[in-house]
Design a protein around this nucleic acid. Structure first.
Lengths: 343, 343
DNA sequence: CTGAAAGCGCTTACAG
DNA sequence: CTGAAAGCGCTTACAG
């Protein structure tokens, strides 16, 4: 890529004249300006934004860290994020890591080295560990945490009302007469913990016993564990009449396990999901679930981050961390029905 | 963030000494170096990578452009890309746009302004238009096109054997005795065009008539169009006994439409997908599909781009554009079966 | 071992 | 209207 210096040589003008001409600043003769502009165009000249970032002490770039991409929920959040960043003229550097915390640490270091103005962070699946947290603390700019959080997290969070959503789904099952309700969770992360909590709250509130053996957990995500766990759960003579699932993908596996065992949903078994992914509507029976609004989560997270960046740039003191949890509403479809009479 | 200059002041040494100490270069006394290092650590100092990028004429950053995120296929490609970039110490700036080509144009300009060393490009859904192509041509560094391509595309491509995969799926249906086969395509893009071609090739090869009215197309993606199209297709007295679908998500909609019309799959209707997304295994009947290897596509695309960047940096002449299409294999599952006798 | 100087690609006061 | 100089945050020859 040609430099401004080169352009100014070609045009036989000084660097500063070329700079003013190209950036549209006043103080350049009309003819000179047009000559410079035309040469720049011929050479596909683009001002070097890296220089601007250094000069302004501001990169107009935010970092997005995530450890999973290939799911609709995360994808929609990211889409919402990009919408807002685009409108505000921010670019995004994205860091994707899977393996171990070590990589997350290096990732954060990169972000700081590249001088991003802030970070939108999907926390690692398990709670962030020591080295990771230290690296995060060393990061000098605003951080907004998305969807998941962790105990003691001091950053702004934008997520969903997981507890309330799970509570509503559980009450729905209880109202249908179910008492033997299993919970298939993923409690390594905060959303899973919250959903389990919502489940427990509802059961306790309605005075219904929670059976330890029906509280099952998948260990990693994504995985096929839910399928096997369901087969176990449903093979015991004493089996649940409803299974509440961590999310829609788990619910789908439960549905297929039930089908493979010859059980009819919702006649023999009721199932609830969480997330309202599109697949849930394209499957028969359509899965009763809890709607989330990932696009809006992404939008709000990005807006909040930009606000924080702006505020910091105007030397305003850092505000206390906020939690913005969007409503998660029950969406009744076809996978839940009255508790079977013989149960 | 503190600057090196600030660190050197604090330590009472020159800028160059501080620089050498921190970057691990020789020529600094042991005690001095350790003092500098410790001060740097205290202040969370990170060398400014933007400066390095400018000095080296190389940003170690690649651009990824895409117009869709929230699907498993694209997500897995991206995951593969990031694996390789990470190993090679490249970072990624991602550009996501949806609305119109205008945004794509601005996006490419941004990438050039930020001086990315190359671009991994998911082309826009429809073929790239004039302004977009011009902007792309003005980009001075290597470009590798991923998954989709367009007529006259001069860049390296990494994708799948779409024609062959569709051919195999069609032959599978023909071998099951189907003759009345519909094709539910998405031919705005090259993969859809290729899959239609594979379908046509197989039909012609086996001397089976292709009926215009059974060649249907969805107009946008993602959408729910496939559901409606299927209902139309299946309501006519004269209906197909098999539907070959552009991809798995379309197949899922076809499956649900068939279920809602009381048709049994595969007894009354056979369905094939494309992609082998995980949902296809979690649905009953499991969908017969064509496997792709998105992660490997991503890995190879990233490797190729890095090779091109490296070669360019060593002043090697630009090689001719290559096409690397990974095998797409038929995976027979439960959604295809013998042609109904009465048909 | 240590530091002053040039340079990467710019922009922005400030002279002329 | 035009340009020389300082400065953003570094690194890398090159003197001392």
């Amino acid at each position: 890529m040609v430099s401004l210096n080169r352009i100014s040589e070609i045009c036989g003008v000084s660097l500063s004249t070329a700079s003013k001409a190209i950036s549209g600043k006043p103080g350049v003769g009309k003819a000179t300006r047009e000559r410079i502009l035309s040469v720049a165009r011929q050479h596909n000249y683009r001002p070097n934004q890296l220089v601007h970032s250094i000069q302004r002490g501001r990169s107009m770039m935010v970092g997005i860290t995530c450890s999973q991409f290939d799911d609709e929920f995360a994808g929609k959040i990211v889409a919402g994020i990009f919408e807002v960043l685009y409108e505000a003229s921010y670019d995004a550097m994205v860091i994707y890591w899977e393996r171990n915390v070590q990589e997350g640490v290096r990732a954060l270091g990169n972000l700081a080295g590249r001088r991003v103005d802030g970070i939108l962070m999907f926390p690692p699946a398990a709670y962030p560990q020591g080295a990771y947290l230290e690296e995060l603390r060393a990061f000098p700019n605003p951080v907004v945490v998305v969807d998941q959080t962790w105990p003691g997290c001091q950053y702004d969070l934008v997520g969903s009302q997981d507890v309330e959503g799970a509570f509503a789904a559980t009450e729905h099952l209880l109202e249908l007469g179910h008492r033997r309700i299993a919970h298939l969770g993923f409690t390594h992360g905060s959303t899973g913990k919250d959903r389990l909590l919502g489940f427990q709250n509802a059961m306790i509130r309605h005075g219904v016993a929670i059976h330890e053996k029906w509280l099952r957990d998948i260990q990693s995500y994504p995985s096929e564990e839910a399928y096997e766990l369901t087969r176990e759960l449903l093979s015991e003579p004493d089996r649940p009449t409803a299974i509440m699932c961590f999310n829609d993908e788990v619910a789908l596996q439960v549905l297929s396990a039930a089908a493979d065992m010859g059980l009819s949903v919702p006649k023999d078994l009721s199932i609830t999901g969480f997330g309202d992914l599109s697949l849930v509507r394209h499957v028969r029976p359509q899965i009763t679930t809890v709607t989330q609004d990932p696009r809006e989560i992404g939008r709000r997270a990005a807006k909040l981050l930009i606000d924080r960046i702006e505020a910091k740039h105007q030397k305003q003191p850092a505000p206390v961390a906020s939690q913005d949890r969007l409503p998660a509403r029950l969406m009744v479809r076809q996978s839940t029905g009255p508790c079977p009479q013989d149960a």
